[in-house]
Design a protein around this nucleic acid. Structure first.
Lengths: 345, 345
DNA sequence: TTGTACGCGTTATCAA
DNA sequence: TTGATAACGCGTACAA
């Protein structure tokens, strides 16, 4: 009883055929005589043979793997950071489903430290046919270094590398514009406050820009933004600061909006009667808080799926102009903006 | 300008060294003369060289990859199936974090059809050093077939393969017992109904068994269980059936409990005043519904982390008796059981 | 329909 | 400290 893991040779010997035949049994099964096929099947079964992916990848120059590289800054213990993870979970799901249809598996890697992103990306890229770089995990150094293989940047910095690599983003500007316009035109708000996200978030930047542009276009004054860190905690803090309570508070993401609403309620301020609160992202939780959160939905899964589509396209055709996909957002009107409660939450 | 992706040879030539030196530059950097190292670094940079993971894996017989194989039965369009996915997301997160610490990446693959699980598992296993089979994705055929490499079954069927492979599960029995005991002893319930999960779910089976055992032990009558499919929809349906409203309804998962509560409220039945409702799993949503759901939390991330730990352990020592880990659950008392509302939701 | 033999890119062994 | 070279396991021309 040999304990080494069996190879094609072992299978071949046991089945009384050549290694080539074994190989064919695994791919072009139909090009074999049924009896031969059966013998090989037997041998494989009996030996517990598993093909060696590395050897396969070496000859075929393909791995049938698509990688995803992202930053996981969440404190493993607390609930903070869950927001980003919720987003990532959606993207992963979308990628996996899209990849599955095309015969790919997804390789996932994350780091805490942005400075480690490059090494991780290289390490993942060396085992994949293409790679998706998520948000902050896409320093231009990484993009340069990986130029040899298909790279898609999702939710990356806006300025850098534009027209350089394929990108997938969400149309933050359109979403925010739609949201603010709703507040102004439907509810007649004129005093809007803004609770923004971290300065290094491209999404946060785009949302803020669209917010002020929309106010300006409407001839309304642009408030000084509060700057949060995308956590519920930060949203709660904002409730303390907002003293002359404005008519409405626009938050750069849902978590902060929810934290804010909760703290406001604790302070005895009624939402949406006294102040409207709206968010951005469309996380599931927003459907279940009371009042249900009016927000702008980011299509997480479609983002993941689009990234895979782009990767696969470039795997087939290398010489293609870079694509810069902006996926549409969707305004989701619920109760926190002051709209009547719909029949179904 | 050659367009082929550069190899160690190209780098070696450009740096005026041998391939062995290039190889060393990537692993034992400190065993090289600083100047040599620098030249190699240069060449790598200039050529945009990326190591070939397949070739590496071939010689080293290691991939530094751990695979996860699961069933994704969710309808891509609807919200149904989210429950299972929430669970999986948590496990993935736990795996990734634990794997990262040990220098591994996670390879993810899913199928809809349980019958396809075996093929997927083999395909994933051939590219990984070890594999985690989740729930239904672990038919004994797969476990047999993969015997050559470390396999961990998470939330698998209870009877099969016990003492065969390493397993990670949650202590459903203890959790359910604790939950039901709370209902009986603290709230004095004597008429309990049960809304169970699908017959093919090992978790559902264990929970039901513990439920009835606890009632029996308390000298209470065991009701006929309603059988749902783990969705909110099913929970809502249960509200119609439960006519002589019992004192409490124990649901085999949170989704059903939430669906039930909502439907009950629509029917004008007050929870928890008229009937207590409790769930199982501890999904995030349960914290935000009103009344907040009393439930039993499954430690999703620790489950993933434990699976990785087991895998890595066996990667180091093959000859070890199989481990059958039962992770503890945690009773989370909120409002839906009738307990006073805690200060923080 | 089946077999032979070479090459894929890297690491490790052994010399130098 | 560095170089030459032999595996590693599989796919695939090419031959039979």
């Amino acid at each position: 009883m040999t304990d080494k893991t069996p190879t094609v040779h072992d299978v071949a010997r046991r089945a009384g055929v050549s290694t080539a035949t074994v190989s064919r049994a695994l791919s072009d099964a139909d090009k074999l005589h049924p009896d031969t096929l059966e013998r090989v099947r037997q041998a494989i079964e009996e030996l517990g043979y598993l093909p060696n992916g590395a050897a396969r990848g070496l000859t075929s120059r393909k791995t049938r793997v698509l990688a995803l590289c992202f930053l996981d800054q969440g404190d493993p213990e607390s609930d903070a950071g869950d927001d980003a993870m919720l987003y990532i979970d959606g993207v992963v799901r979308g990628m996996e489903r899209a990849a599955r249809e095309r015969g790919y598996a997804i390789l996932i890697g994350a780091v805490q430290d942005p400075d480690a992103a490059l090494d991780l990306a290289v390490s993942l890229a060396s085992r994949a046919d293409g790679i998706v770089l998520l948000g902050q995990a896409a320093p231009s150094s990484a993009i340069q270094r990986l130029k040899r293989l298909p790279v898609v940047v999702v939710a990356g910095r806006c300025e850098d590398d534009q027209g350089w690599v394929d990108q997938v983003r969400v149309d933050n500007a359109a979403g925010m514009t739609e949201l603010v316009t709703h507040l102004i035109e439907v509810h007649g708000h004129t005093r809007l406050a803004y609770l923004g996200g971290p300065a290094d978030s491209p999404d946060a930047a785009e949302r803020w820009a669209a917010f002020r542009a929309t106010l300006t276009a409407a001839g309304l004054p642009v408030p000084l933004p509060l700057v949060g860190d995308f956590t519920q905690h930060t949203g709660a803090q904002a409730a303390e600061v907002l003293d002359p309570v404005p008519g409405a508070v626009v938050c750069a993401n849902d978590q902060m909006a929810i934290g804010l609403m909760t703290a406001l309620r604790d302070r005895g301020v009624r939402v949406p009667e006294e102040v409207a609160v709206v968010g951005f992202d469309g996380i599931d939780l927003g459907r279940h808080v009371r009042p249900a959160l009016t927000t702008v939905r980011q299509p997480m899964q479609p983002i993941g799926a689009a990234a895979v589509t782009l990767l696969e396209r470039r795997l087939r055709v290398r010489d293609l102009p870079p694509e810069d996909l902006r996926l549409p957002t969707q305004l989701i009107i619920r109760a926190s903006c002051g709209c009547p409660i719909p029949r179904l939450a």
